[in-house]
Design a binder for these strands. Structure first.
Length: 884
RNA sequence: GGGAGCAUAGCUCAGUUGGUUUAGAGCAUCUGCCUUACAAGCAGAGGGUCGGCGGUUCGACUCCGUCUGCUCCCACCA
């Protein structure tokens, strides 16, 4: 079979993925081996593959495949997250397109549509991950809202409720008026936003609700909320405002009378020193309101529109109302001035709507104990953050975390298992039946229909924080005393978690909490935090910017292996990734290089009667040593999670050492055969290389490994063992480097003198050079004879130095003496400068006295070497001058 | 406003407790090659006062201070 000169990935990749699946190579069951466990950060069930997933899952897959080849029982559990807000949104949109309004549906009807939608469109991303080569155990695929995992969530809620850590409270929450739900503090993004600072006159009341001619001025960014004002507040120490004590003022436009109060909270030198207090629509104002017993008047509805309580502008959107009310205030003469103002405004992470602080009844989970334990887990090193720079951030968050608002005003999700009795009392139980039973203990004879279940569902993170436990044993969360099932006992704690730093708090920290609470043990040993994928301009990739390429198109164009390489190349640990398609091209080129090296070897004919030549002998010896050295380095990189360094080491080893040096050395002349011994080694080396590269580039390595020789049905490179490093001769590897340098210098002379690589040259050596390596120089630099001499008297050629050994290529008639002299003089100059700097050091008594012996010895060696070089340059120059 | 991190070749980054010749890699660039595995290639070459200033030290890319620039996290001054 003739192999194409270019590697064509698509057919190859589909073929092998099918084969892997068919043979269930990714499937894991507990056995006697050491487990290596990874749970996927479950992508949104609505999600489609983006570059962040590619990065994440490539790294994950590399680690999993590496562990598998290291002989561990590797298990990578995939799955998806029900993503309540995102999914509900998609379903609502779909229904709207069909002319159906959510508000016209019952909860049950809506959920039916939602499940239909999920079955039809959900989980596409899992199919896409296969294209990337992800070796997940698909038989273990989980979904956070499947019945068993939902049970786990409900049990967890009941557990914490009974423990007293879950409570319902009326709180100021972050309200997303776009999605009509509360969101957690972590889902609010503060952005500096340009707005206006409106200075408004509030006239003092005459006591009968009529304005006097006296007034005070407040400054606000939210004039549309003045109708909800409950007081005006000044700092008690602010003498400018003492005349206001006991006074009442009138809210402009509606003329409602409110008191002037005093509170330390008000900064005297900010704004006008007078603060309008609007308890229903501002977190601090709410706090002040509590302190001063102020009434709470809510004038904004769940959609962010003014309600009837506002009296004016009823039904207007808050931002429209702002514009209109400013105009009205101006007309009424209440507007003093408007300043440009930039202030931090909270936006919903999900909808980008401006968050409305809103007073509502929500469920909370107490965080203090959980956070304390989770902090200890990381500080003690039981869970390591990689890179560790995230430890500070993690600590800070854990020390300042507030209670977690876990209720969401949505339907898609686990409905809170709280049931209200007619008298308002609450029972919390895992099933309606149990709830009724409990309720009857409170009110005998209660009927099922008398119990009303809480309408809200739980925050999605309240299910995904159980993920590393629930994917194995869904009955464990919420039951810390229950013994774990066999899977959980074997696979937990997991080893590595690969995820983005953006969900360190949302997800990772909370998993550590849940793991500690229910398992008494951290969920993972290491958390590898990837960078964030950015475009060339440094912008985060996002759908809205449209700057994210479609990974599937890239895989189609370059192949999955190339895409994996491309992502890894630009992802040094912990740094953000500046994505550039040229990296993927590099990956494709590497595939092609590997492919073509195989074409070369495959084309050779073997002659068993041939003796192994000296050059082949030394080539095999060198590459064998080098292989061990590189394996050692690669293992070291892996152990430090420096995946891109491991890749680069292998990349250079394959491209430079194997292809450019080794294969060039053992390559038989055109039409000739290779000896059997060398051939066998060459094939073994190739096989080792494929195995080393397989975790990174699974497809091409399987293809070539299978093509090397007939393999048994059901065999695969992914279960071959990682090649192990043997002891190696470092000195020999270094000596070989001298041979490479020599060949390089001769090639360089050819280039300068315009001598074809086909013309043979003669080489003279003065000084040390390992004889074993002479055939290497001969073959790679096309040198016919090599002669050791004590001097170069009477020779005409280009000289160069390898270490302290002098060499010369004979160039009769081709030599430009002037040029040679100039070249040597430049080298001499450089060397003399170097010598000066070394001597300066050595003549410094402090240096000799203070520096450690070996350092001083090294300097002396430098001095000696430098002197010998200088001497050599001078003699060469003199010789050239004499020959002139 | 508070905190953290980063600044090394055109680009992306290494540089492991201060001393390994006068700082490395990959890509890009330049020069010469369609040499019978690969032009998605081969051979060779050039390119950096290690962000600025100051300090500690016999010696600083490496430690300390400071300035500048960028990034991220946290944060309710209306």
């Amino acid at each position: 079979m003739e192999l194409d000169v270019k590697y064509a990935p698509s057919a190859v990749e589909d073929k092998w993925y099918e084969y892997w699946l068919k043979n269930k190579f990714f499937h894991s069951e507990p056995d006697g081996r050491v487990p290596y466990t990874v749970v996927i950060p479950p992508p949104n069930v609505t999600g489609i593959l983006h570059m962040g997933h590619v990065l994440n899952n490539t790294l994950n897959d590399v680690l999993v495949r590496k562990a598998r080849m290291d002989g561990r029982n590797a298990c990578w559990v995939p799955g998806t997250d029900h993503a309540s807000i995102a999914t509900e949104n998609k379903v609502v949109k779909m229904l709207e397109e069909q002319g159906i309004k959510k508000s016209d549906l019952t909860r049950e009807q809506f959920l039916e549509y939602a499940w239909q939608w999920k079955e039809k469109y959900g989980g596409i991303i899992l199919k896409q991950l296969r294209k990337l080569g992800a070796s997940c155990d698909w038989d273990r695929t989980r979904f956070t809202m499947e019945p068993e995992l939902s049970d786990a969530v409900i049990n967890t809620f009941v557990y914490f409720y009974k423990k007293g850590w879950i409570y319902k409270g009326v709180r100021m929450v972050n309200w997303d008026p776009d999605r009509c739900t509360a969101v957690s503090d972590e889902e609010v993004i503060h952005k500096d936003t340009k707005s206006h600072f409106y200075h408004l006159k509030y006239f003092i009341s005459d006591g009968n609700g009529k304005p006097t001619d006296k007034y005070l001025v407040i400054a606000t960014t939210r004039p549309e909320t003045i109708m909800a004002d409950a007081a005006i507040c000044v700092n008690p120490a602010d003498e400018r405002h003492h005349w206001l004590r006991g006074k009442k003022v009138l809210i402009p436009l509606i003329n409602r009378e409110i008191p002037v109060i005093e509170d330390d909270y008000v900064e005297m030198d900010f704004g006008t020193g007078c603060l309008k207090v609007t308890p229903a629509h501002d977190v601090h104002d709410y706090e002040i309101g509590l302190r001063h017993n102020l009434p709470v008047l809510d004038i904004i509805d769940e959609h962010g529109r003014l309600n009837a309580e506002a009296q004016i502008l009823v039904g207007e959107d808050r931002f429209v109302a702002r514009k209109k009310i400013v105009k009205m205030l101006e007309e009424q003469g209440n507007l003093v001035k408007v300043e440009e103002y930039v202030s931090p405004v909270g936006y919903s992470e999900k909808s980008d709507a401006v968050i409305e602080p809103r007073l509502s009844a929500q469920w909370f989970l107490k965080m203090d104990e959980l956070a304390k334990a989770a902090l200890e887990t990381v500080e003690s090193g039981r869970t390591k953050l990689i890179p560790d720079k995230y430890l500070n951030t993690y600590r800070h968050w854990m020390e300042t975390v507030r209670d977690w608002c876990i209720s969401r005003q949505l339907w898609w999700g686990q409905q809170i298992p709280a049931y209200y009795l007619p008298d308002g009392r609450i029972v919390v139980e895992s099933t309606p039946e149990k709830a009724l039973e409990e309720a009857r203990k409170l009110v005998p004879g209660l009927k099922a229909e008398d119990l009303k279940r809480d309408e809200d569902v739980l925050d999605t993170w309240f299910s995904s924080w159980l993920w590393p436990i629930s994917v194995f044993d869904p009955h464990k969360p919420g039951n810390p005393d229950k013994a774990p099932n066999a899977d959980l006992a074997y696979y937990y704690p997991t080893n590595d978690l690969v995820t983005g730093p953006d969900i360190l708090f949302f997800w990772v920290a909370r998993m550590i909490m849940a793991g500690g609470e229910f398992m008494g043990k951290e969920p993972f040993a290491n958390v590898y935090l990837t960078g964030i994928v950015r475009d060339k301009l440094g912008r985060k990739m996002s759908k809205s910017l449209g700057n994210s390429p479609d990974p599937l198109e890239l895989i189609d164009k370059y192949g999955a292996d190339a895409v994996r390489i491309g992502m890894l190349l630009c992802s040094s640990a912990g740094n953000d990734i500046f994505y550039d398609e040229s990296m993927i091209e590099q990956g494709r080129n590497f595939c092609n290089k590997i492919w073509n090296s195989f074409r070369l070897i495959k084309g050779w004919s073997v002659d068993a009667s041939l003796e192994q030549s000296d050059v082949n002998k030394v080539a095999v010896k060198w590459f064998g040593n080098k292989l061990s050295q590189v394996i050692e380095a690669v293992e070291d990189h892996y152990s430090k999670y420096r995946i891109s360094d491991a890749l680069m080491a292998l990349y250079k080893f394959f491209w430079d050492d194997y292809c450019a040096w080794y294969l060039e050395l053992v390559k038989p002349a055109y039409g000739q055969a290779i000896d059997e011994k060398t051939y066998k080694c060459t094939i073994d080396f190739f096989s080792s290389l494929l195995k080393l590269i397989h975790p990174i580039m699974p497809f091409i390595t399987e293809e070539l490994w299978q093509a090397m020789e007939p393999r048994k049905e059901g065999s695969t490179i992914m279960y071959e063992s990682t090649p192990k490093a043997a002891t190696y001769d470092k000195a020999f590897i270094e000596a070989f480097e001298r041979a490479k340098e020599t060949a390089g210098s001769i090639r360089s002379i050819r280039q300068q003198k315009n001598i074809s690589p086909k013309n043979e040259l003669e080489l003279k050596i003065k000084g040390e050079f390992q004889e074993e390596l002479l055939p290497v120089v001969k073959k790679l630099a096309n040198v016919s004879t090599i002669e050791f001499r004590s001097d170069f008297e009477g020779l005409s050629g280009a000289g160069f130095m390898i270490g302290t050994t002098e060499m010369m290529v004979i160039l009769s008639g081709l030599l430009n003496t002037e040029e040679e002299i100039a070249k040597l003089e430049a080298l001499l100059q450089y060397q003399q400068n170097f010598l000066d700097s070394v001597r300066k050091k050595l003549s410094n008594q402090n240096f000799v006295a203070h520096a450690p012996e070996n350092v001083v010895a090294a300097e002396r060696k430098k001095e000696a070497d430098s002197l010998s070089k200088i001497e050599s340059y001078i003699s060469q120059i003199n010789q050239l001058k004499n020959n002139k």
